[in-house]
Amino acid sequence: MKERTSKQLLIVLAVMISLVMIVIGGKAYMDKREERKAQELLAVEKQSVQALKNTFADIAEVKIEQFDKNEMTGFYRAMVTMTNTKGESVYFDYGFIAQTNELGAYGIEDIDIQKEGITTRKIKAIYSNGQEEDV
């Protein structure tokens, strides 16, 4: 009888250890998946800033306030504050298509600041995660 109780205890202990290992492994997998998703989103944000430089002239700084992906369409939507070389800022949204590396639709809030053209000089980019770099 005592041998049977020991075997049952051993089986219960093995099951508990297995469950703990599965939970820990699942958590690690989910964390890595979220990290990879955040890295991919940051890469597309950087791509979109380059597209902004190819669309608007005289940009000094771009701050991405929000950047989201529509999982159904693969289309990205951004809310940004763009500052020109005169220190004037405008807050607007734009769509971005990563496959073609082009802006989709964008809102014109101030035509004096959002001048069409190309910015060739380096600009300061502040991404939605707070990371900053010169592009």
Rank of each mutant, 00 (worst) to 15 (best):
Q66C: 07
G74E: 05
N84M: 09
N54F: 02
E34L: 15
E102M: 13
K46V: 15
E109P: 02
E116H: 05
A78Y: 02
I64Q: 08
F67K: 08
A57N: 11
E40A: 13
I59T: 06
T83V: 13
D31G: 03
T73H: 09
K27S: 09
L19I: 11
Q66H: 13
K46I: 15
E109A: 02
F92H: 14
K69F: 06
G117Y: 02
E102T: 12
V20C: 10
D58G: 09
D93S: 12
G104K: 11
Y91W: 04
T73Y: 08
K115C: 01
K69D: 05
G87M: 05
V44G: 03
T120L: 14
E40S: 12
I113P: 11
V62H: 06
D110E: 09
Q66Y: 11
I108V: 14
E116M: 08
A98W: 05
L103Q: 08
D31V: 12
N54P: 00
I59V: 06
F75R: 15
V20A: 15
V20F: 14
N84G: 07
Y106A: 02
A51Y: 03
R33H: 12
V62N: 07
T119W: 04
M72Q: 15
M79C: 08
I113F: 07
D68M: 13
L41I: 11
G26P: 09
R77K: 13
G74M: 04
M72S: 14
E109I: 06
F75W: 08
I111N: 08
T85D: 12
K63R: 09
F56K: 03
R33P: 01
I113S: 05
N84R: 06
D93T: 13
I111M: 03
S48W: 11
A43G: 12
S89R: 07
K27L: 12
S89P: 07
D31T: 10
E35D: 14
E45C: 07
V23S: 14
A43F: 09
A60C: 06
Y91V: 10
M72G: 10
I24R: 13
R33V: 08
L19R: 00
E116Y: 03
I111W: 03
I97C: 02
K69T: 05
M82Q: 15
T73N: 09
T85L: 14
E71W: 04
E45F: 09
S89Q: 12
R77W: 07
M79F: 14
G104N: 10
A57I: 02
K37R: 15
G117P: 01
I59Q: 02
G26S: 13
E45R: 03
I64A: 00
L42M: 14
K53T: 08
A60F: 11
I22G: 03
E116C: 01
E35F: 09
T55L: 03
E61W: 04
I97P: 01
